Computed example of a mutant assay.
Amino acid sequence: MIKQALNKLQAKRSRGAQAEQRARQFLERAGLSFVAANISGGGGEIDLIMREQTTLVFVEVRLRGNQRFASASESVTHSKQRKLMQAAQYYLQREKLTDKVPCRFDVVALQTLDSEQQPEWIKNAFGAA
């Protein structure tokens, strides 16, 4: 039973890593530059940090095959947004970038890992209120 749970967790992590790689490639083709991935701190984790010209873009990557309750983009709850903003603040402080660079939060949503499927890119999906 424990082995089965570990296998399921490993499969989920693998799918998540594949989704992040697809999102990164998609954003790079759109002209963004890669900065960092999987930054943890401040109570949250940022999947991707990209740069679009002078703007630092914090990207949440969502993969949702089952849309029964919400689409991938709708699954970024207020609680998740708060954690992402805390992690971004942590990163900005760590890198001594606070008040020096414009930032935004984007969501890249994938319904499948199929390379033919176009990701949904929501620029400036949410922000600090």
Rank of each mutant, 00 (worst) to 15 (best):
Y90L: 08
G44L: 05
E74Q: 15
A87T: 08
Q86P: 01
E60M: 01
Q93T: 11
D114M: 01
L6C: 07
K100R: 15
A109W: 00
M85Y: 05
Q21F: 02
V61R: 03
R62S: 09
G127Q: 15
T98R: 11
I46S: 05
A72Y: 03
F34T: 12
S75C: 11
I49W: 04
Q111A: 09
S14P: 00
Q118M: 12
Q89T: 11
V108T: 05
V57R: 06
S33K: 12
Q89G: 14
K96L: 08
Q67K: 14
L56Y: 08
D99T: 06
A19P: 06
A30H: 12
E60I: 01
P119V: 07
I2G: 15
S75G: 07
F26I: 00
L97M: 13
I39Y: 05
F69C: 02
L48V: 03
Q111K: 10
L6R: 15
T54R: 14
N124P: 00
K100Y: 03
Q117G: 00
G127S: 14
G43L: 06
S75E: 07
L113G: 10
E116L: 13
E116D: 12
N66I: 10
P119W: 07
S75R: 09
D106P: 05
V57P: 02
V59C: 08
D114G: 02
E45G: 02
Y91H: 14
F69M: 08
G44V: 08
Q93K: 14
N7Y: 04
R104Q: 15
G44R: 05
K3Y: 10
E74P: 02
A5Q: 14
G65F: 04
S115Y: 04
M85E: 12
I49Y: 05
K12M: 10
E45N: 10
T98F: 02
R94W: 12
K12Q: 13
A109Y: 00
Y91M: 08
I49N: 09
K80R: 13
G41I: 03
Q89H: 12
R29Q: 13
E116W: 03
L110R: 13
R13M: 09
L92G: 02
A11T: 11
L97V: 10
A30Y: 06
E74R: 10
Q10K: 12
I2Y: 06
A23S: 14
G65C: 04
Y90F: 15
T98N: 06
A17K: 11
L63F: 06
E20S: 10
G31M: 08
G65I: 01
R13I: 03
V76S: 06
Q93C: 07
R24H: 06
E52R: 12
A23T: 01
M85I: 15
A37S: 15
A11L: 13
E74A: 15
Q53N: 13
Q93P: 00
E95R: 09
A5L: 14
V61N: 06
